[in-house]
Design a protein around this nucleic acid. Structure first.
Length: 494
RNA sequence: GUCCCGUUCAUCUAGAGGCCUAGGAUCCCAGCCUUUCACGCUGGUCACAGGGGUUCGACUCCCCUACGGGACGCCA
């Protein structure tokens, strides 16, 4: 029962759990998974990990599975599960099977731990947290890596006594694996200690559950953040002890904040869903995330199909990458310029509603989007700069007003107002003629009339060619706004 | 502290010993276009962390240093 002497395996009677995948399914080439712990929203790093795992599975004609790692019941929440699901759904990272919840699999983990215990590959430990803390302090003081000293390895601890279960790591030799991203990684077994696989309260811990699940789910490629590199050797020993083949590992580097430090809340928006609220398009987010740490020559713009086609783990970078909002904005603008107008209209409605504009995705909105789309980099911005098509402008944007209203624009506004009011039809051509006639009559430059008119009608918001702008704003609103501007100018003069 | 991983323009990256006087993209700057703002176009600034090797030849291979990140939990 001394684990130092027995390095056999505990596997023979352990069968693959049949209720997750059928035998035919596990026989399929590639199965990847995304395994978040539901303690918060889906953050950028997690989303990218999920994306890479999803892409790899898609490309290989394999399957992608979501596993909820909720064994820490104190920190896990259903709300977080929903947030993760919503984030993945937004990015269309659809799993190929129902999510697996670890809390539903405790019986299985228990059975595995008991097997390990019975095979002498794990043992009960009664060391108190106090002793562990003291040991740790001592080792740190001696400039050593803190690790459990194996005190309970050869003790006979009765099952009735409160205890944890520790897994016997081999004391000598080394472990290695070939990481699909960074190549061969080796570690001395002495660096490893006997990790806890079952807590005092009887629940299993991460390193055990991840191994059991990855095996049971038939995961062929474990694609995860490189903060797990150090766990991998421990897990490999667990696989060996259980007589299972290790999956292939691929560790992708972290995403850092703009300042180069680890991405966290203080960097602002880390939640993927925040970007949906802020008016980003999922395809922009996906494209951005994919290019963060991965590349395919000089190509920057990738459709989902192209990502699937070109993705490769070997092309994933080894160094961490910094998140850069400017580039995301550029990509978002690119997709805003090229997306279907009808789709954009639907997506824009909530952003307009947030500004108090309740409209429908009608022909006017389509025309507005066509006119404004290249002037915004988010849907929220698109809504903001398009509001004047629906609402009268309360104030003039100072910079635009200064430029447009210098000199005395009132006569020009009054005359163009008259000519516009007299038009038989409200069309681009007739409007253009009215403006041109005003310019000719006043013997001034085109801008002398057009500029104040534009700002009077738009409030100084970015807008397309003047006649189109006026057509979309409509005659009544246009005339009302000109009157308001004249009013405003006369007052501010006095 | 120990172990693991990493280091090309401000940022994302190309580069698998000569193709590199280091390419692309974002940002920034300038110009063109222009009745606003954009878009678009043209041009520009900006990088192989440092030091040793190996080699006829090193951004590419090896070693050391520095710096950065991660792990060292009865978190995952």
């Amino acid at each position: 029962m001394d684990c130092a002497t027995s390095r056999g395996t505990a596997h023979s009677r352990l069968q693959r759990w049949p209720d997750i995948l059928t035998a035919e399914e596990t026989a399929l080439s590639v199965i990847t998974r995304f395994a978040p712990s539901p303690t918060g929203y889906l953050h950028l790093g997690g989303a990218r990990t999920a994306l890479f795992a999803w892409l790899y599975a898609r490309q290989q004609g394999g399957r992608f599975i979501l596993r909820i790692e909720d064994t820490d019941q104190a920190r896990s929440s259903e709300a977080a599960v929903q947030a993760i699901l919503a984030g993945m759904d937004w990015l269309s990272l659809t799993p190929d099977a129902e999510p697996v919840y670890q809390t539903h699999r405790f019986a299985r983990y228990d059975a595995v731990i008991n097997q390990l215990l019975a095979a002498g590959l794990a043992y009960r430990c009664t060391c108190s947290p106090e002793r562990l803390a003291a040991l740790r302090a001592e080792q740190l003081a001696a400039k050593q890596k803190p690790r459990y000293d194996g005190l309970c390895r050869n003790r006979q601890v009765a099952a009735e006594q409160p205890h944890v279960v520790r897994f016997c790591q081999p004391a000598t030799g080394d472990v290695g694996f070939v990481d699909q991203v960074r190549g061969a990684i080796q570690m001395q077994n002495q660096e490893l200690d006997d990790l806890i696989i079952r807590r005092t309260d009887g629940t299993p811990t991460y390193n055990l559950t991840v191994v059991v699940d990855d095996h049971d789910m038939g995961i062929t490629h474990v694609i995860r953040g490189d903060d797990h590199i150090n766990n991998t050797p421990r897990q490999i020993h667990l696989y060996r002890a259980l007589g299972w083949d290790s999956p292939t590992f691929a560790h992708i580097p972290m995403i850092l904040g703009e300042d180069g430090s680890r991405l966290s809340k203080r960097h602002g928006a880390v939640s993927v869903l925040h970007y949906r609220e802020a008016g980003f398009l999922p395809e922009a987010m996906l494209n951005y995330l994919a290019r963060l740490g991965w590349s395919h020559g000089d190509q920057e713009i990738f459709s989902q199909d192209q990502l699937i086609q070109h993705f490769s783990l070997a092309a994933v970078n080894t160094a961490p990458a910094s998140f850069n909002l400017k580039k995301l904005l550029w990509l978002n603008q690119h997709y805003l310029k090229t997306a279907e107008t009808t789709r954009l209209a639907e997506l824009l409605l909530p952003h307009l509603a947030a500004l108090g504009i309740h409209t429908t995705a009608d022909t006017k909105l389509h025309a507005v989007i066509a006119a404004q789309r290249e002037r915004a980099d988010t849907l929220a911005e698109l809504a903001r700069i398009s509001a004047f098509y629906y609402q009268d402008v309360a104030t003039f944007e100072p910079k635009a007003a200064r430029k447009a209203f210098k000199g005395n624009p009132v006569p020009a506004l009054q005359q163009v107002q008259e000519r516009l009011a007299a038009l038989d039809t409200w069309q681009q051509a007739t409007i253009h003629q009215a403006v041109a006639d005003t310019v000719a009559a006043l013997e001034v430059g085109f801008g002398k009339v057009a500029l104040p008119l534009r700002v009077a009608v738009t409030g100084g918001m970015p807008s397309p060619e003047l006649d189109l702008t006026l057509v979309l704003v409509g005659r009544t609103a246009t005339l009302r706004r000109i009157a308001h501007a004249i009013d405003y100018l006369l007052k501010s003069d006095a």
